[in-house]
Amino acid sequence: MLEPIEDLGGAAQPLLEVKGLVKHFPVGGGLFAKTKVVQAVDDVSFTVAKGETVGIVGESGCGKSTTARLLMQLMPRNEGEIIFDGQLVGESMSLRDLRRAMQMVFQDSYASLNPRLTIEESIAFGPKVHGMADGAARTLARDLLTKVGLKPETFANRYPHEVSGGQRQRVNIARALALNPRLVILDEAVSALDKSVEAQVLNLLVDLKREFGLTYLFISHDLNVVRYISDRVLVMYLGQVVELGPVDEVWDGPAHPYTQALLAAMPASDPDQRTEVPPITGDPPNPIDPPSGCRFHTRCGFCEDVCISTVPRLSMVADGAHQAACHMVIPGSGHTRAPAASEAAA
């Protein structure tokens, strides 16, 4: 194993702080057409404490994967700061150090493995780049294969196309762990797996987290999986965080109408409690030209004038831990359902 990465900030220092992250992709625009931008991630801020699992949920295209790729420095950002264990990335922390401390597992288990390397070679590759001798790296790879439940005798010398999707995802997890990282970003890492295999991989993730003292950022569109694995959750809509808080508080008392709709849209689990009315109608709007004010206002049943004119900021719902970006929770916002401004001061 590579030496563990030293803890600098102590337990109270968040492992990851993200401040005002922005990513706009230019799209279209020819010789005469004006270039438009997709506001893929727009002013996203959050923290992840040491040892915590933070989930990110939201519908396709809301910016989950872009957020993950920005954190991994896989593409340049337009704005924002990323602070890892108190160190500003790009200044007091180098990209090379960050790319060891933070690892990512993608949904498409096949695309992320080099088809010409055996599984053992794929896992050993990273540690060798970071200076480990070939023999030691191969031994490590075999140990990690055992840890993720794959017999090295059977799997070490196979190529990626010679194993199943669930087994490949285990290989990807082993590869992410090979650098002894502190934070692992799992982007739809179990979404492509069949249910019986998904449960195996989730159990594995829980075990590995305990054994290696890991912190997870867990991205998924599957609300059941996120509730099971996360301590806290962020809900994203059209590039923005609309609600965040401890997962049980958000599930039991969602404050943002979008979160309410998302939870209500989950298919029933009891044949006698089928959904009778869809919680909201229509499709998510185009992120090229998002609605003004609150981006959810085109689909929200509580929309009032203030929602169209003014962007709601993330504000506290109950205590400091549960926040939502909705004018109905912002004291004195002008929404008829908002608490009076004085209540906040009291």
Binding site: S164, G166, Q167, K195, S196, V197, E198, A199, Q200, L202, N203, V206, N224, V225, R227, Y228, I229, S230, D231, V247, S269
Partner: peptide
């Protein structure tokens, strides 16, 4: 298959699985 669902499973509790593929 029905037992291995994460729906309603408690955090930290191990999920039931079907071994193998």
């Amino acid at each position: 298959l029905l037992a291995s669902t994460v729906h309603g499973a408690k955090r930290g509790q191990r999920l039931e699985t079907i071994p193998g593929t």
